[in-house]
Each structure stands twice: as structure tokens, then as C-alpha cells.
Design a protein around this nucleic acid. Structure first.
Length: 668
DNA sequence: ACTAGGACTTGTCCCTAGCCGG
DNA sequence: CCGGCTAGGGACAAGTCCTAGT
């Protein structure tokens, strides 16, 4: 019905444009019409049939070039049904007595999956965008050494600017940072500079620092037009370099810009902080694309390191970074088929774990009694991974990164055992730095067997010895692989996160709640998961202030409310006195006003609670990486909550497959 | 069995576009 | 229309897990 209404409107527009004599305008309208028709087409179909009948008037199709139709159709179809792919090369379209027959092939993701391990058949892109070249400082901005101004060579100056931009950060005062920086900086100096500049403490970067501050201030002060221009330029760059063609579809690239040079910071107590991250040139880049595609061109006068055609991998370009010597990649955006499909598979693996988790739990409990030490250790570690959602904990090379651990790499110093604590027995206290040097602190009571085993593991060990000395991640994962196909340590995190969300949602959602209250429940369920996974954040710098603002708003609303209530009272007594229509209306109006303000107040209060509870907890990570989006989609459908209340635009794009697939009765 | 390298996922921080109330 | 604030996106670091070579 809706579509036919739209069609009528379109037809009216069509007549209109025919009578218009302005050629240009007509052309424009033509284009819009095409777009409109194509978007209508995309929305017109449900997704399961191989062949669709669609009733309409042929006039639309005659006027559209078949090629355009095909392309628009492919795009629209994909946007609306990301879980499917349409093969439009075989698109077949003709009219029959006012009906239009459209026939094309629809393929589901899993049907399209290649069996030989290849990830794509065709890949074409324009290559990465490089960091802008270094612009030397104007002469008036000077660097001082030992109190005297000194002109630096361009390479040395560039590195100096990196440091000068960071002057406000605490880490420029750290010894390691300064030492690493100075060492790398000296490598960029001319021999003359090298002999002169021997002590970082005698370097004065303040003038440079002020210059950059002024620059950023000036950028803020730019006129609207200038800002608009920059925005447009950026947009153009995205249009040109931000997309690629992979197997008949135009897909967004995740990070098409190469990381600019700068000083490496690292997280936590990183031994390499302050080192120079060098500039990446075309000669460092390996391009990956299909042989029969138009290969990306390197910037004039340069060459790529290599152009290869490896369809067993998903990346478009790669280079080796100089701090850790690891490889960096350019890959597709999460909304792309290749990422979405993988994401979906991940949750399917977690759902398979759900089916056999009881068996696995029984087994590891059995293994706590094993005669073999390695099996006991494996079983206790697995218990922690399952119960506490710890990460696997690969070994790391000492001195290369910050000292952090996961389950398998836990050391004796990270756990403390308390046979009795308060009113609980067999309490284990964990205190260690995990990924990104985020502290994990937790005290939990465990079963007696686990406790006894831990005591055994700790015997005759130094604090810096491994807790699980007979275990590492590859042993653990090999074991898990035997328990279930595709099972690894991280699947437990996904599984426990998703199952917790589903169960919390069931528990917390009250059918009679208002929409904001329901959303609060959702956020609380999300929060439970974030706490489980230890997703913390530094309380935002503006937290206190924004909390206060909210509080004042609430007070204001409360005042408004009491005022409105008073007015309602007055109106009521007026009505009692006069009993006329006018006063009756007035009462209604006032009643509505009170109601509205009550609602607003409630919304604010809910918001305040939500924010307070969220002070140190980051919801984003679990939402993006651990929670099966179909649970959320189903919840939204079940309770009539708009999906946009839960997922913002990017998240909706990433989870398009789930929004498409999940019905309100979906069970993880 | 062990290691290094490679590919891909997960994680936090920081900046800024754009929203909203005054 | 302006300025303050904040959500969201980008940047990029740091994990996991797998494979191939020794």
C-alpha cells in the first residue's frame, strides 16, 4: 500500500517534469527519479524468494537504463538485505499485463562462502592515502639549545615538532620516554647537530609548542566557508579512496589513511615509549588486489614495495611498522560483507558452545582431580576463563611491551589465597594488569578443589614464577579444539557475555515500563556484561561537571512540576466554581502539561542514574565485540523499542545482518 | 615441540562535528 | 546565532589464534 502511494506521487512528479521546459532541471529530476525508483525497488522485496513478482507500471522501467538499474539494484538490495547477495548479472525484467517480473539470483552469505579458503574473487581499490609531507616551521619560530636559538635541519626539526606538541603531557617528563626520544631524534640529526645537541634538558621547545597551539586556535577561528571547504575536500578524498569493489559490491574501507609519523606512546608502562614512529612511504607498502582489476597507482615518482594478488587474505594494503616490527593493514569497514560474515560466524560458534558447555564444565571439574599436573592446571585455568571471562594470556617477549598478563600467563604474585575471608570460604584475590594495562581486581570464592589445586600450584614458587607452569595458550586451545570444533579460549568470553545479556534482559525488563525505563534496563544488562569483561574507562574529565548540570536541570524540572501542579489545582477549583466548558478545557490543558513535565523529569532522572552507574564502565567494547546483536534486535522488536535507541548509525551499519535476521523470539 | 610471523579481533583514548539550550 | 558539551568516530595500540618452518 505504502509503495503504491509513493508510486502515485512519483507519477505525478513525472508528469510535472515532462511539462517543464528546463532541460537541466529535467535531467536532475530524471536522476532523482531513478534513485527513487531504485530505492523503492530495494525496499519492495522480502528476502527469501528466488523470484519476485512485483506489481507496478512499466513506465518506470522503460525510462531507466538497464545498466543503471542493475547497479542501483545491487547497491539497494545489499543495503536492505545485507545478509544476502544478489547476482544481478542475470537480472531479468519484463512486463506482463501491468505486472513486472523480476528474476535474479539471491545468495545467502554462507552459500557464497568459498570452499577453497579464498576470501574474494575480485578486488579493486585506489590504494592508501599518505600522510601530508612535512611543512618546515616559519623562521620566526625558533628552537633554543642551551638558551641560544638554533636552526635545525628539516628532518631533525620534524622530529622536534613531535616532541614539542606533547609538552603538556605528563609522559614527556618520564625518563624512558625522554631517553627513547632523544636516542631516535639524534639519528635524524646532521653530524653537526649531533655534536652540538647532547643533552635533552638543554633543549627548549616552548616557542614551537606555542606556535602549534596558536595554529590549532586559528583553525578553530576559521570562517564557516573555510571549514566547509576543508570538509568538502575531505569528503572528496573519502569518495575517491574510501571505497573498494569486492565481488560486485562497493564496500567501505576501514582505514584508508596511513598513520602519520610521530612519537610512539604505547599504553601503560611501555619500554618503547617515546620512540620515533617513522614516516611510511609508498616503497614500504604492499598492495593486494586482484590481477584483473585496475591496480592502484603509486604517487608520481614513487613505487610500491610490491603488488600481490592474494585472495586468501582480506587486506588491501600492508606495511611493516618500525616500533615492534609488526605488520599493519588496511582492511574493510565493519559494515562490509567480509567482516559481517565473520562476526556472524563468531556468534554462531558461541551458540554452539552453549549446546555443549555443560559437558565441558563437567569435564573440567573432573580434571581437577587428575593425576597429572598439566591437566589440573589446564582445568583450573579453563575454570577461570569460563567463570571470570579472562583472556587467554599469550606469552609476550620481555622488554618489548608493557608487562601485562592474561589467564595462562598469570604469575604467583597476581593471586592471593584466603582460606577464610569475612563470611566466605576459599577466596581467591586477583590483582594484575590485563590488556592495555587495565587493572583487573577481583575477589571471588571458589570451590574447595580449585582452592586446593591453587595451593598446590603455588608451592615452592617465587612471586615472579608462572602460576600455570605446565600450560600455555596453544596447549589450552588444542585441548579446547578437541572438545568442540572451532572452540578457543576467547569463545568463552563471547559466549558468557552474550548469555549474560540475554538472561539479564529477561530479568530486568518490566513489560509495563516506559520506553526510557526499558532502555535503562537494557543499559543495565549491558553494564553487567561490561563488568564481567572488566571493560573500564577513565572517568571522563568533564564527568563531575556534566553530572552537576544534569542535577540542576532536574531541580529546575522539579520546580516546573510543582508550579504546573499548582496551576492545575487552580484550574480545577475554577472549574468547580464555574462548571463551564472553557474552564473544563483549561483543566485538561493543565493536566496534560503536568503529565508532560512528569515524563520529562522521569527521563532526566533515568539519564542521571544511567550516567552515574556508568562512570567507570565502558559499554562500547562489549556492545561492539561480544554481544550477539540479534539478542538486542530481538529485544527491541519484542518491546517496541526503536533500534536506533540502542544502536547508533555506525552500529546499525555494522549489525545490519542481525537487524535483518532476528525476529522477536530469537534465542541466543 | 617450539618459535616467529602473519592475519585478524579487541580495546582505549582523544578530538571534533554537530546538537542543544539560552 | 553562539558557545558549551558530549556522542561518536577515528586513531592506533594490544590482544588472540593460526600456520609454517625449524
Amino acid at each position: 500500500k505504502e509503495h503504491s502511494e509513493k508510486k502515485h506521487k512519483d507519477r505525478d512528479k513525472l508528469k510535472h517534469s515532462n511539462s517543464s521546459s528546463d532541460k537541466h532541471r529535467e535531467k536532475h529530476k530524471e536522476k532523482r527519479k531513478e534513485e527513487k525508483v531504485c530505492s523503492l525497488l530495494g525496499k519492495a522485496f522480502s528476502v527469501v524468494d528466488i523470484t519476485f513478482w512485483y506489481r507496478g507500471k512499466i513506465i518506470f522501467f522503460m525510462e531507466i537504463n538497464m545498466k543503471v538499474l542493475k547497479f542501483c539494484f545491487a547497491q539497494d538490495f545489499k543495503e536492505n538485505n545485507p545478509y544476502f547477495t544478489a547476482v544481478v548479472d542475470n537480472l531479468f525484467c519484463f512486463s506482463l499485463m501491468g505486472w513486472i517480473l523480476l528474476s535474479f539470483v539471491v545468495i545467502r552469505w554462507e552459500e557464497e562462502r568459498y570452499t577453497d579458503g579464498s576470501k574474494w574473487r575480485f578486488l579493486e581499490h585506489k590504494g592508501p592515502v599518505f600522510a601530508p609531507p612535512y611543512e618546515p616551521l616559519p623562521d620566526k619560530v625558533r628552537f633554543y639549545y642551551d638558551g641560544k636559538p638554533m636552526k635545525l635541519s628539516a628532518p631533525a626539526e620534524e622530529v622536534a615538532t613531535f616532541f614539542s606538541k606533547m609538552l603538556d603531557h605528563e609522559y614527556t617528563t618520564k625518563d624512558i620516554f625522554r631517553k627513547n626520544f632523544f636516542k631516535d631524534w639524534r639519528k635524524e640529526m646532521t653530524s653537526e647537530e649531533k655534536s652540538k645537541i647532547t643533552d635533552l634538558n638543554k633543549c627548549d621547545f616552548t616557542e614551537m609548542n606555542e606556535y602549534f597551539k596558536a595554529q590549532s586556535e586559528a583553525r578553530k577561528q576559521m570562517s564557516k566557508e573555510e571549514k566547509q571547504k576543508i570538509k568538502e575536500e575531505n569528503e572528496r578524498l573519502v569518495q575517491e579512496y574510501g571505497f573498494c569493489i569486492m565481488d560486485n559490491h562497493k564496500e567501505r574501507i576501514g582505514n584508508f589513511r596511513i598513520e602519520p609519523p610521530g612519537l610512539f606512546r604505547g599504553r601503560g608502562d611501555h619500554p618503547k615509549m617515546g620512540m620515533l614512529k617513522r614516516r611510511i612511504r609508498p616503497e614500504d607498502i604492499i598492495i593486494n588486489c586482484s590481477k584483473d582489476s585496475k591496480h592502484p597507482k603509486p604517487p608520481p615518482g614513487t613505487k610500491w614495495k610490491e603488488v600481490r594478488h592474494d585472495n586468501k587474505v582480506t587486506w588491501l594494503a600492508s606495511w611493516t611498522e618500525n616500533i615492534q616490527g609488526s605488520i599493519k593493514y588496511i582492511m574493510l569497514n565493519p559494515s562490509s560483507r567480509i567482516k559481517g560474515e565473520k562476526d556472524w560466524q563468531k556468534y554462531e560458534t558461541a551458540r554452539r558452545l552453549k549446546k555443549c558447555v555443560d559437558r565441558i564444565r563437567t569435564q573440567y571439574r573432573d580434571d581437577w582431580k587428575s593425576k597429572e599436573m598439566r591437566i589440573r592446571q589446564r582445568a583450573v585455568a579453563l575454570y577461570f576463563i569460563d567463570k571470570l571471562a579472562l583472556r587467554a594470556g599469550n606469552e609476550k617477549e620481555e622488554g618489548e611491551t608493557a608487562d601485562t598478563v592474561g589467564c595462562c600467563s598469570l604469575r604467583v604474585e597476581h593471586v592471593k589465597l584466603y582460606p577464610k575471608m569475612d563470611d566466605q570460604e576459599y577466596v581467591v584475590e586477583f590483582d594484575f594488569l590485563g590488556k592495555d594495562s587495565i587493572r583487573y581486581y577481583n575477589k571471588i570464592p571458589v570451590e574447595k578443589r580449585v582452592f586446593k589445586n591453587l595451593q598446590l600450584f603455588l608451592e615452592n614458587k617465587q612471586p615472579e614464577d608462572d602460576l600455570f607452569d605446565r600450560l600455555n595458550t596453544s596447549i589450552l586451545n588444542k585441548h579446547l579444539q578437541e572438545l568442540m570444533d572451532g572452540l578457543t579460549a576467547k569463545v568463552f568470553r563471547t559466549y558468557n557475555a552474550s548469555i549474560t545479556l540475554q538472561q539479564q534482559l529477561k530479568e530486568l525488563t518490566c513489560p509495563d515500563d516506559s520506553i526510557p525505563a526499558k532502555i535503562l534496563s537494557y543499559n543495565r544488562a549491558n553494564r553487567a556484561v561490561a563488568i564481567l569483561c572488566n571493560h573500564q574507562r577513565a572517568p571522563p574529565k568533564t564527568f563531575e561537571k556534566s553530572m552537576q548540570n544534569l542535577q540542576t536541570k532536574i531541580e529546575e524540572k522539579q520546580n516546573q512540576l510543582s508550579a504546573a501542579r499548582k496551576q492545575l489545582k487552580v484550574a480545577k477549583s475554577d472549574h468547580k466554581a464555574s462548571h463551564d466548558d472553557k474552564s473544563k478545557k483549561a483543566v485538561e490543558v493543565k493536566r496534560k502539561a503536568v503529565q508532560r513535565i512528569e515524563e520529562q523529569l522521569m527521563k532526566l532522572q533515568v539519564q542521571a542514574t544511567d550516567r552515574e552507574e556508568n562512570k567507570q564502565i565502558a559499554l562500547g567494547t562489549s556492545k561492539l565485540n561480544y554481544l550477539d546483536p540479534r539478542i538486542s534486535v530481538a529485544w527491541c522488536k519484542k518491546w517496541g523499542v526503536g533500534i536506533e535507541k540502542i544502536y547508533n548509525k555506525t552500529q546499525r551499519e555494522k549489525f545490519a545482518w542481525a537487524i535483518d535476521m532476528a525476529e522477536k523470539d530469537y534465542e541466543f
